[in-house]
Structure formats: structure tokens, C-alpha cells
């Protein structure tokens, strides 16, 4: 269900648990077989100490939250800027929260400026960033 577009409005959170099976599925789907994601013995010898989720997998969860809130407006005219702060590791539970910071109107078009955070179960920031969604003024 699409949300009411209003400044300060929180977006529905997305919660996802990271498993090696999900990382492997993402590697298969995306074609990104970097061993840091899929080779546990290789990853164990790196400073990261183990496999990590693809950054784009974490970002896909952000996109899921945005699509739930804004529907096709996000899919067709969304903008995103994200910083990957820490890797998401096996066993992590990621919670993605977002909110509409402000709504701007330029000509007959409205823009929802949102911020988001993706944190793990320890509260550590995994991804942070901003999004902008263009939508018609009658969608409120």
C-alpha cells in the first residue's frame, strides 16, 4: 500500500536476515562472484574475517522500502545516493528505516526528499543515504 506523502512521515521498515544462502542466491542472480562474498575460506583470511553481503544486496532492501512507499514513482523516476559504512555479515539482521524529510514543489511536479539508514542488530550503521522521488501533485 502506498503511503501518504507528508513531511516527517516514516516509511515502513524493511527487516532482512543475512545468510550465506541469500548471498549465494544474489551472486547467482547478479553475476557478482567476488570471493569475498561467496568463498568462506578465502574471506576468512582477509581483514574482514568472513564473507559479507554484496553492498547492492543491502541496497536492494532500501529499494524495496522505497517501492513499497512510492510504487511506480520510485521505479521510474527515483534517485538515490548511498554510502556503505560497514559490511553486512553472516547472521546479521538488517533493519532499514526511512522517512520523508521534506516535500518540494517545482512547477507542477512534487519531490519527496527522504533519508534512510540500514543498521544491523547491534545498531551499527551499514548503509546510509538519501533518496528523491518525483510524483504528481495529486498523489497525496
Amino acid at each position: 500500500m502506498l503511503i501518504e506523502i507528508q513531511e516527517g512521515k516514516a516509511l515502513d521498515s524493511v527487516v532482512r536476515h543475512i545468510t550465506q544462502e541469500k548471498i549465494n542466491l544474489y551472486a547467482e542472480a547478479s553475476g557478482d562472484f567476488n570471493p569475498i562474498h561467496i568463498d568462506e575460506s578465502f574471506a576468512a583470511k582477509t581483514p574482514l574475517g568472513g564473507t559479507i553481503a554484496h553492498g547492492m544486496l543491502n541496497l536492494a532492501y532500501v529499494s524495496e522500502m522505497m517501492a513499497s512507499a512510492f510504487g511506480r514513482s520510485w521505479l521510474s523516476e527515483g534517485k538515490l545516493r548511498a554510502k556503505f559504512k560497514e559490511p553486512a555479515r553472516l547472521g546479521d539482521t538488517l533493519t532499514i528505516n526511512g522517512k520523508i524529510d521534506c516535500v518540494e514543489q517545482k512547477d507542477d511536479v512534487s519531490y519527496a526528499n527522504c533519508s534512510f539508514e540500514c543498521r544491523n542488530q547491534k545498531g551499527e550503521m551499514i548503509v546510509t543515504g538519501e533518496t528523491i522521488v518525483k510524483f504528481s501533485s495529486d498523489r497525496k
Binding site: 532482512r16 541469500k22 542466491l25 544474489y26 547467482e28 542472480a29 547478479s30 553475476g31 557478482d32 547492492m56 544486496l57 541496497l59 536492494a60 532492501y61 529499494s63 524495496e64 517501492a67 510504487g71 511506480r72 520510485w74 521505479l75 527515483g78
Partner: peptide, 24 residues
């Protein structure tokens, strides 16, 4: 396959981040 990997039901279009995944 992509939707299964990202735990999403999708909405009849290609998810934009699936396209980004191809680029990456």
C-alpha cells in the same frame, strides 16, 4: 531469480537495482 535473492515479491517490472546489478 533476482527477486528470490532479494526477498521481494516484485510488481511486474524489472526492479531498478536488478539493472544496476547487471551494470556492476
Amino acid at each position: 531469480k533476482y527477486l528470490q535473492a532479494v526477498d521481494s515479491e516484485g510488481d511486474g517490472f524489472v526492479p531498478p537495482l536488478a539493472i544496476t546489478a547487471c551494470s556492476i
